[in-house]
């Protein structure tokens, strides 16, 4: 997927890369639910992430990042609804996910 945003503005998708090399391609709008990612990808910021559309997280492993990506989709899909069932979070992932969520400002 072309991640450069040289040609007419931003690409629709961004790539999230975990510490163990897993890549998750997510809608830019969905990923920007996270304050941290939003700031990373802000075109005004001139971070390398903003130029390439790739965010590498050295402290989040693939399993946790997958859950994070799932949450982005869940949030994006239900953004206009009020009566939303909570997303299931496996208890064993809970702590790591909490750290990641805190880091990502989600």
């Amino acid at each position: 997927m072309a991640t450069s945003n040289q040609d007419q503005g931003l690409s629709k998708y961004v790539t999230l890369v975990s510490s163990d090399g897993f890549e998750f391609v997510v809608l830019r709008e969905a990923a920007c639910i996270s304050g941290a990612i939003k700031r990373m990808l802000d075109p005004k910021s001139a971070f390398s992430e903003a130029r390439t559309g790739r965010c590498t997280f050295a402290e989040i492993n693939g399993i946790v990042l997958e859950k994070v990506a799932e949450y982005f989709c869940y949030h994006y899909k239900n953004r206009d609804r009020e009566d939303v069932p909570d997303m299931d979070i496996p208890p064993e992932l809970c702590l790591e996910l909490l750290m990641a969520a805190d880091y990502l400002d989600t």
């Binding site: 239900n78 609804r81 979070i89 809970c94 702590l95 909490l98």
Partner: peptide, 15 residues
């Protein structure tokens, strides 16, 4: 506010 909880809240509640 009713709607989607943020991920931190979800995690803390699960915890």
């Amino acid at each position: 506010y009713p709607g989607i909880k943020n991920l931190v809240t979800l995690c803390v509640e699960t915890l």
